[in-house]
Design a protein around this nucleic acid. Structure first.
Lengths: 216, 216
DNA sequence: GGATAGCGGATAGCGCCACTATCCGTATGG
DNA sequence: CCATACGGATAGTGGCGCTATCCGCTATCC
């Protein structure tokens, strides 16, 4: 197919597709003439993935480029690719420090307590430390009481995720599945958590329903 | 204190503080002269909250303004404020539709199945539907198999959150606590989920550790 | 009381980012 | 054969979170 049909099928404007190609998110079409290119279903699939990572996952274009580069690299060992990909999924805080070393200790303790096979310099650990440090600064140092409950829930979800990937291991590209699961699963879990909050708030404070849409 | 000290204490540059005041995130200082203003600890606290919502929560400035406006409004019924605040915490997708009505059915079923007291037009439900629709478009319609596991985990966390808020109910502003818990708790949970992923991947694929930092 | 630093307030500009518009010369296809 | 779409390149746009500059005033130190 040509770029117009690719655009029609995915809803992504033609100039935007060209932009993604320029940025290395999408491989260029195969040239049949010096200025004619053909695209296929792999492009369509990749394009949908890009949009999902952008719109639902909230990743930046540059981060998506790096993740997809790792996905496409056929030479890397699996767990390395998974790590490299996952590392790009969090927020992009500059590696500052200040007094978050305290939070890092808390994180290390948690990792050890749960027996997680994770090195403490993992970006996710840094993200966690940042969040805990922010909570502490806001007078919520006691939030750490909830950490084990949170960790339990996270383990539950992670187990389900990995089982899911296992079940589909023959279906498509493994790494791509993991990326999708990690990013979109996060969106799903966040939304569910907010729904559950509304439910429990409704039971505690509210009347019949917890709905309270905008009316500024 | 004056603006310079406020800046020094929080690490936020003076022009940025002025900008926040202009945008309505931070109340102006109390004028002691036509062009001298005083700030106090409430400003400092508010400023830290703003930075946390921005840096850790990833909220946009405009969204923070709306949330804080709801927090400060003394006239609203509690559950309304909570709802209005929570509604601003998700992504800002334009209310398009397409074929996500299917996903909305799935969401409605889930809400009913779990007995959640949530109206289905809650923004969080829309977010969830968006994520599910994106998964479906990527060939992951079967992800819905995991929904109940995810929901279970979400309930667990939500229960812990509400208990936590209950325990602190006398400490500070209730609504502010809920906002903090919702936003920063999400960051904590996401990071923990990624850590748990790394752990399980390490057990399944890897060697001793699941670390795989950047080396592009 | 005079110098110097900081202040409040306003306006304009910057840097990044995700596109989007335009142009040109070349195929495609009815 | 010729309108239409295409590939490729370059420049521009709009939004956002600040940041720089300027003005006249005030607090503070000696």
């Amino acid at each position: 197919m040509r770029i117009g049909e690719l655009s029609r099928r995915t809803g992504v404007p033609v100039p935007t597709i060209k932009y993604y190609v320029r940025e290395g998110l999408l491989p260029p079409g195969e040239l049949s003439s010096p200025n004619q290119a053909r695209y296929d279903e792999t492009h369509e699939r990749r394009l949908r993935l890009i949009r999902a990572l952008l719109d639902v996952g909230g990743l930046k274009v540059a981060a998506i480029a790096e993740v997809l580069q790792a996905v496409d690299d056929p030479a890397r060992p699996v767990h390395k690719v998974l790590g490299a990909a996952a590392d790009r999924l969090g927020p992009q805080h500059d590696t500052d420090d200040e007094e978050l070393s305290e939070a890092l200790v808390t994180v290390r303790e948690l990792i050890e307590r749960r027996g997680w096979r994770v090195h403490a310099d993992n970006p996710a650990a840094a993200d966690l430390a940042h969040a805990l440090a922010a909570l502490d600064r806001l007078g919520h140092g006691t939030f750490t009481e909830l950490l084990d409950t949170y960790a339990e829930a996270a383990e539950q979800v992670a187990r389900a995720d990995l089982d899911y990937v296992d079940r589909r291991v023959a279906v498509e590209d493994l790494v791509e599945n993991v990326v999708i699961g990690t990013v979109l699963g996060e969106a799903v879990l966040s939304a569910l958590r907010r729904l559950a909050h509304v439910d429990r708030s409704a039971r505690r404070f509210g009347k019949r329903e917890g709905n309270a849409s905008a009316d500024a």
